[in-house]
Amino acid sequence: MSDFIPFVQELLEDWAPVSARRMFGGHGLYHEGLMFAIVMDQWLYLKAEEVNRPEFEALGLTPFTYAMKGKDVALSYWAAPDAIFDASEDAVQWAQSAWAAALRGHLAKAQARERAKAKLADKKVTRSSRV
């Protein structure tokens, strides 16, 4: 693990405990079991979605991309602004926003799973009542 990850963890210690796990040549940063950031090649990328993405776009920041089968694939993790490395208050604000985005995504997936289970259960009930 590079010195960059402990630096980011220390930067965020006023906000919350952050753990790091190796993944795909980089690291995922987690808080309360949710990955809210990735570190690839000494760059920090924060989770972004429709609610907080405009903040990244307004600063001209870009998503993390990688090449797959000759095409660039963009992930929902965007470059962190340089300002967060100068002020821990800014780092905390951006980390909270990224974690909230990760939480919204997690909750949306859980709700979708529940809807799919309910739909499947309805189909089973409908079939059994026909018998």
Score class of each variant (00 low, 15 high):
Trp15Ile: 03
Val18Ser: 06
Ser97Arg: 12
Ala80Ile: 08
Tyr30Lys: 10
Glu55Pro: 00
Val51Asn: 00
Val39Asp: 02
Ala87Arg: 13
Glu55Ile: 01
Val73Tyr: 08
Gln96Val: 00
Arg104Ala: 12
Lys47Phe: 07
Trp94Val: 08
Leu12Met: 02
Phe24Ser: 10
Thr65Glu: 11
Ala58Ser: 14
Tyr45Gly: 07
Asn52Phe: 07
Ser97Val: 01
Arg53Gly: 00
Leu44Cys: 10
Trp43Tyr: 05
Ile38Glu: 06
Gln93Cys: 03
Arg53Met: 09
Leu75Phe: 01
Ile84Val: 14
Leu12Lys: 06
Leu59Phe: 04
Gly25Thr: 03
Met23Phe: 13
Ser97Cys: 07
Asn52His: 06
Asp82Thr: 11
Glu55Ala: 15
Leu29Gly: 06
Asp86Gln: 14
Leu75Glu: 07
Pro54Thr: 05
Glu49Ala: 14
Phe36Leu: 06
Ala74Gln: 13
Arg22Ala: 13
Phe64Ser: 08
Gln42Pro: 00
Ala100Gln: 15
Ile38Pro: 04
Leu61Glu: 13
Glu50Gln: 09
Gly28Val: 00
Thr62Tyr: 09
Leu103Phe: 07
Ile38Gln: 13
Ala20Cys: 05
Leu103Cys: 09
Ala91Gly: 11
Phe36Asn: 05
Pro81Leu: 08
Leu103Lys: 13
Tyr45Asn: 10
Leu11Thr: 05
Gly28Trp: 01
Gln93Asp: 11
Trp15Phe: 14
Gly70Pro: 12
Ala20Ile: 01
Ala80Tyr: 05
Phe24Ala: 12
Lys109Arg: 14
His27Gly: 00
His27Phe: 12
